[in-house]
């Protein structure tokens, strides 16, 4: 599904990623681990087209992202769900409206939105909180709403950048369970994290990045840093 071919990325004179070769298959659950600043976020940004590789290629289903026109990037992003550590919900909108917002911007009709959003909220287990505002929910619930929003376009790929970074253990476990559930339903999931206990619990493929390089690849890995 996603292939990194000898990808190099610089920020000024600093080499953020060097010679990354990586393949992620359809339906996989892959954890990218490494310390802060190792290059995990940069790797994800290359997939969404937010950053462009200085050398090498990033391919999604054999499409070279560098060749996607800037005006077409929004359509690419609708195929990729993104979740972040800082959650990024709109504070003045309810849970329902936050998820609906993602569908509105891509031109879905009101009746379709009314039908789809409850289904997605049910999937993340928060249908009963649909009229609540973000400040009326726990951190874990907020992150699950953010995940619901990222699912609004029914993406083939969900990328989570430190989704549990601001959460306590219980909430983190809830979010992780949800990601695993989404993966089971067929969505490819990339989880970038430095939370070793989570990664050890999943027992799925782990890529370890250090200083912009892939230093370890394990099929059923553990966090080793």
């Amino acid at each position: 599904m996603i292939r990194f071919e000898n990808v190099i990325k610089y920020f000024g004179n600093t080499k953020a990623l060097s010679a990354i070769d990586l393949e992620i298959k359809h339906g996989e659950f892959i954890s990218i681990v490494g310390l802060s600043g190792a290059g995990k976020s940069t790797l994800l940004k290359l997939v969404t087209g937010e950053e462009r590789a200085d050398e090498g290629r990033v391919l999604i289903d054999d499409i070279d992202i560098a060749k996607v026109k800037v005006s077409d990037l929004p359509y690419l992003r609708r195929k990729i769900g993104m979740v972040f550590q800082d959650i990024k919900l709109l504070p003045k909108r309810t849970a329902f409206e936050n998820v609906a917002f993602a569908m509105e911007v891509s031109g879905h009709k009101r009746d379709r939105i009314e039908k789809e959003v409850p289904k997605i909220l049910e999937l993340v287990g928060l249908l009963h909180k649909k009229h609540n505002f973000p400040n009326e929910m726990s951190g874990g619930e907020r992150q699950r709403i953010a995940i619901a929003r990222s699912l609004a376009h029914r993406p083939a790929l969900l990328m989570a950048d430190e989704p549990t970074g601001n959460l306590d253990e219980v909430n983190a476990a809830e979010v992780l369970d949800l990601l695993l559930k989404i993966n089971k339903l067929g969505t490819t999931v990339i989880l970038a994290t430095h939370a070793s206990d989570l990664v050890n619990k999943i027992k799925k493929r782990v890529i370890t990045i250090e200083g912009g390089r892939v230093v370890l690849e394990q099929e059923r890995g553990r966090y080793k840093l």
Partner: peptide
């Protein structure tokens, strides 16, 4: 700013 960032994130066109 926040709203614009989210719009971009969820695939709003320019």
């Amino acid at each position: 700013k926040e709203e614009v960032e989210i719009m971009r994130l969820v695939g709003a066109t320019n």
